[in-house]
Amino acid sequence: MSTASTEHLTDIDRETGALVQGWDRIKQSIFVILTTRLRTRLMRLWWGSKFLDMQDKPGNQEVLMAGMMAAIAAINTYEPEFKVTRVTIDDFGPDGDITITIEGVDLVDATLKRVRNTI
């Protein structure tokens, strides 16, 4: 029987090199998970998501649903401190930019959080 951690993981901020923890680390992790294509990391070929596979495809309902499902599956698999409850694709631009809002529960703090990214 596993017990929930009472302390957030610590990581390194991708832009500043400073230590990052809590919600800032989770937001960074979600962004990295969604922007890493599967089989692109040499030592972790299994890590990443199929979310970016929806770029350069028509913005129909089937593609949007596949993208949302890919985001949910990848985040729930690779981010141990966050459980996705809702994903929405807010904008699917002609230039390939995808704006996504992800809602879920921070499992350490037991609080509802929301992050919006343009990828």
Rank of each mutant, 00 (worst) to 15 (best):
A74R: 02
I30Q: 00
L38Q: 04
S5N: 01
F82I: 10
A71H: 10
G22S: 06
A18R: 09
T16M: 01
E62M: 15
K50F: 05
D11Y: 01
D56W: 15
K27H: 02
I72N: 05
M43I: 11
R44F: 12
K27S: 13
D13N: 02
A70W: 08
H8F: 03
T36I: 06
R25E: 09
L107W: 10
Q61A: 15
D106G: 14
K50D: 15
I75V: 15
T16F: 09
R41A: 06
D11N: 09
R114N: 05
N60W: 13
G67D: 01
E7I: 15
K83N: 10
K57T: 13
I100S: 00
A110N: 13
D106F: 12
V115E: 02
L19G: 07
D97L: 06
M54A: 00
F31L: 07
D13E: 03
D91E: 11
L19I: 12
D91S: 10
E79F: 01
A66N: 11
E79V: 01
M69Q: 15
P58T: 11
T85Y: 10
P80K: 05
S2N: 07
G48E: 02
S29E: 00
I98N: 05
T35V: 07
M43E: 06
R39H: 07
L112A: 07
A71K: 04
T85K: 02
E7P: 07
E15I: 13
T85V: 08
M65I: 14
T40M: 02
M68S: 13
R114W: 05
L107G: 08
L45S: 12
A4I: 15
D53N: 09
K50T: 12
V105W: 04
D106K: 03
V63Y: 03
D24L: 13
R14M: 04
S5D: 01
Y78A: 10
G59M: 05
F92R: 02
G59Q: 02
T77D: 10
M1F: 15
L112S: 08
F82V: 07
V20W: 00
I26Q: 01
E81R: 04
V32K: 00
N117A: 12
M43C: 08
I100K: 01
G59T: 00
I75R: 00
T77C: 07
S5F: 01
N76T: 05
V87M: 02
L42W: 14
T101D: 06
G96M: 03
P58S: 12
N117D: 09
D11M: 04
T40L: 03
R25F: 03
D53E: 05
T101A: 03
L64P: 10
A70G: 07
R37S: 02
L107T: 14
D106M: 12
G93W: 11
F82Y: 13
T77H: 11
M69S: 15
I119P: 01
D95R: 06
G96N: 00
T10R: 00
E103S: 08
N60A: 14
R39W: 07
V115C: 03
W23F: 13
L64Y: 12
S5W: 05
S5Q: 00
D106W: 11
